[in-house]
Nucleic acid binder design. Sequence first.
DNA 1: CTGAAAGCGCTTACAG
DNA 2: CTGAAAGCGCTTACAG
Lengths: 365, 365
Amino acid sequence: MVTMKDVAAAAGVSSATVSNAYNRPSKLSATQRDHVFDVARKLGYSGPHPGASSLRTGSVGAIGLLITDWLSYAFEDPATTLLMRGIAQVSQMADISLTLLPGGGRLPSSVTEDQPDWPKVRRSVVDGFLIYSLPDNHPAVRSVLQRRSPVVIIDAPRVEGVPFVGIDDRAAARTAADHLVGLGHRRLGVLVDRLLPDGNHGIASQARIRRATDGVARERMRGIQDSLRHAGIPLSSVPVAEAGGFLFEEARPAVELLLDKYDLTGILATTDVLALTAMDVMKGRGIQIPEEMSVIGFDNLAEADQAGLTTIAQPLVEKGRVAAELILQVVAGKTAGTTILPTSLVERTSTAPANALKKSKRRSA
Amino acid sequence: MVTMKDVAAAAGVSSATVSNAYNRPSKLSATQRDHVFDVARKLGYSGPHPGASSLRTGSVGAIGLLITDWLSYAFEDPATTLLMRGIAQVSQMADISLTLLPGGGRLPSSVTEDQPDWPKVRRSVVDGFLIYSLPDNHPAVRSVLQRRSPVVIIDAPRVEGVPFVGIDDRAAARTAADHLVGLGHRRLGVLVDRLLPDGNHGIASQARIRRATDGVARERMRGIQDSLRHAGIPLSSVPVAEAGGFLFEEARPAVELLLDKYDLTGILATTDVLALTAMDVMKGRGIQIPEEMSVIGFDNLAEADQAGLTTIAQPLVEKGRVAAELILQVVAGKTAGTTILPTSLVERTSTAPANALKKSKRRSA
DNA sequence: CTGAAAGCGCTTACAG
DNA sequence: CTGAAAGCGCTTACAG
């Protein structure tokens, strides 16, 4: 391998001059510079070794982005894609690159608790990390903290003293539930993507809901339960169907479970992906929305608008932008705190007052 | 900063032992290992510095992915997103991370030709590069080649001796054009995303089409012209509207140009994004598809299916997967050649025979 | 405007 | 199972 030293020797200069030719061209005469580049080309020199430079300078111009589960989620889950868009916009502007790191799918609790670190994080050559919605006690978070790298967490987990960007998931979910309850719905079902990353799915017990480690799902569940309690609806009367994942295909069985086994008038979905799947399944079964069933989502994806889904809007692209700006600040040595972005209820046509007549009609069907 | 040396000193061992504790845990006794980790924790050691490791080992476990223009395209352009999905699937499996590098938007030809290298590529700490659809003579390609890094090119540019994954854009586009011509269409218009990355848009001259540097657009244009020539339709009679970019919003003015200034019965779009925008604009104007206008696309996105768009199907996710597998091979020291994936015409309801009666009716409107 | 020298933090044969 | 030593390729004050 041709190194800077070889080029220096062949060009009859010191390696400092070769380094300057690449990194601070103004520090040497044009003649000298061209001479160095000429020799480099002739020798087949690849340019300064980036690893060695970073060792010396301590900076690499890249941010690591830890994503929930699989890398491909970044390009499949619509909410994640919107967030990524915001992050990408800022990274582009700041001329840094983005290194995508998977959080790694199913984590039996043994792994979660025992694995001391996440080698990928330990080995990543980046200046800082953005963590997006990882379960509590995820080893990758420990590794980032242990590296003492600059870090900003998006959505989850909440870690004392670590800069954070998110929304008030609990309050927002309560608003969604209050909306359905306020319309007179009492026979409600809940759709949640994932409570724990253990591969389970189906109807979740109260105990499982309490043990939830996926922060966003847990907070939204709490918001829903706040609303139910306030309305005097027993939590045990409201089935919670857990999809076990974040994608459209995973949502379908959870929806079917709710429709097959319970007589409901309203579905509270903790994400739009779940809500849209629910609408799709109901369409297939000829269930009228909102006449026979009200559905409310969370996220306000573009698809929600098209489908007429009532939902909670959260600024996903902006969340990405804010997070990217914050991590750049932290990398630059400034401090950053917690940013909570606003949410709002968007009423469309998927929710309507509970109607006793229709309900009993359906029940007799 | 606490280094491995400090930990070694405090633990009363050599730094080789500390290194082994992290990288080859089986090389020392459990007791010794725990002792080392204990001391490391007490001292606040961040673990082996990744830059220094990579300098020594020569590998970092990351692939750089150079994307057309802006990073956010990866999360906005549907075709790019599908490709990314395939790449992400493989990267995940192979436990490598993906560093996203922007190709950098508008490039006046002066930059394209003169800029000797692309500092971002030169400085990226990665084991190899995947290049996705960059214009000819893009400095980033030069930089990758100069680094002598392992590389696989997707779609464009074609570089002698560099492993390549793509489709036969020219033949596929000819198939699309032949389809419309075969249905009797003679008054055709073409929609193309971008011929050169110089920020221009509008009706493209024959000279501009010949000078095109965006490889995919150029090949598809050639395929269309092959078809027109074969059918005896003068190229000059077929307006080519260039959007200047790849996104839905950029396509709209190009569509309007075609509809406002020409009396057409068929539109050949070189991407589905363009075709879908065309259908949308026509819907807004009350133009019936396919009764009054036939439209054909290219890519076969999910949205094309929903819209009933006749198009050319290409396996985008698989293209990503193949490219990722190839770059891993090349990084591992194996050789790789050229892979051309199959395409096919998918007939839906956006194309129909040209009908003289309807055409003249429209013309008089 | 250019060069000699020190050192960034680590890993790896090799010897014991 | 553990350690001493060499060296990965570069950048940066500093001196001239």
